[in-house]
């Protein structure tokens, strides 16, 4: 439900159209460009610098190149099944994102959606691996499943910690428990929430198979095996689904732990006095996106400087380190809320 804009259905549609077409969908190009520039600087290279001003059009050049690449084989029904799962994962990642206090699909279950999209994405990767009918694909598919299951448990427990703090799982409830300033963010309300925050974001990387924890989805046959044969449009679809999964998970992390879209109260009061609700919505959205991009770039930065782990090391880490920490955070958060807060 999109509520509170007050200027009618058409204006809501226009705002969403503007946000999705000009910000959310092109964000893949922006982050890809930042990723390549940042990685290049870290690696004593220049990075993209020829296509457009400072190489800014490079992602679009890549997009066109991938779209026009001819595939070595035709789409089979197995490809279609996989493709529909990937498309479903992209849709689930993007369709119901919490974009601000007025731009929400807010139900009791909305905040569980990232888990759904991540699991669909994993199922798509599993099918992709099995479709290959090769040893590498088969091993890769099994690795994806092992990796995702190991990451989902601690992520879910960490997610429950936030629910204990806020008293529910509606987006508005999760956001309204936090303020503009960092000390009012959920992750800093107690040491247990800080642990939950770290567990949640690391588990997200494991579930989605993102660097530096991509392991099973690495584009090398012997490490990953799932995506080593992809090229052209198939590769594009896979990469986009992973990117939007990353965007979605980072945004949800910001909403759960890092102050969501909360602006300074004084500013909101002034804007509301001016009845500029659309402006409030847009400012909330851009503030949320800024924090999301910072989280994503921080992850990319850490990923660039570290070697990759093996899948079994990752699953070990998730079960033996993240899960116990998540359980401690859950118990600690429950005790904290019952004894300290009340």
């Amino acid at each position: 439900m999109i509520a509170g804009l007050g200027t009618g259905f058409l204006s809501n549609i226009l705002i969403l159209f503007f946000i999705y077409s000009l910000v959310l969908l092109p964000s893949a190009a922006l982050i890809s460009y930042c990723d390549r520039k940042l990685s290049a600087r870290l690696q004593a290279r220049v990075g993209p610098h020829r296509t457009g001003f400072l190489g800014m059009l490079q992602p679009f050049a890549d997009l066109l190149k991938l779209l026009q690449k001819r595939s070595a084989w035709d789409w089979s029904w197995e490809d279609s099944v996989w493709g529909s799962f990937q498309a479903m994962a992209v849709y689930a990642s993007l369709a119901a994102l919490p974009l601000g206090s007025a731009l929400l699909m807010d139900t009791e279950m909305s905040s569980f959606l990232p888990f759904f999209s991540a699991l669909v994405l994993a199922l798509g990767s599993l099918l992709l691996g099995l479709n290959q009918a090769t040893i590498a694909g088969w091993l890769g598919g099994i690795r994806v499943v092992g990796q995702v299951f190991s990451g989902v448990f601690p992520a879910f427990i960490a997610f429950l910690c936030v629910g204990i703090h806020t008293g529910g799982f509606r987006w508005k409830l999760l956001a309204s428990a936090q303020g503009f300033y960092p000390w009012s963010w959920t992750c800093l309300t107690s040491p247990f929430q800080l642990i939950a925050f770290l567990v949640f974001i690391i588990s997200g990387l494991i579930i989605l198979g993102l660097p530096p924890l991509e392991g099973s989805q690495f584009p090398s046959e012997i490490d990953g095996g799932v995506v080593s044969h992809l090229s052209g449009r198939r590769w594009l679809l896979f990469q986009l689904s992973k990117f939007y999964g990353f965007l979605s998970w980072s945004m949800v992390t910001v909403v759960l732990f890092l102050g969501a879209w909360s602006l300074p109260d004084a500013l909101v009061q002034v804007l509301e006095a001016m009845e500029a609700k659309i402006l409030v919505s847009l400012m909330e959205f851009f503030w949320l996106m800024s924090k999301t991009f910072v989280v994503m770039l921080a992850v990319i930065w850490i990923a660039s400087a570290n070697p990759r782990s093996r899948v079994d090391q990752m699953t070990d880490f998730a079960w033996r380190v993240l899960s116990p920490f998540a359980l401690v955070a859950l118990m600690g958060a429950a005790l904290w809320e019952s004894w300290v807060v009340f």
Binding site: S39, Q43, A44, S220, D223, N306, P307, R308
Partner: peptide
């Protein structure tokens, strides 16, 4: 070990 930073250095 897929560590591109070291590789380039």
């Amino acid at each position: 070990v897929h560590s591109e930073v070291i590789l380039h250095y």
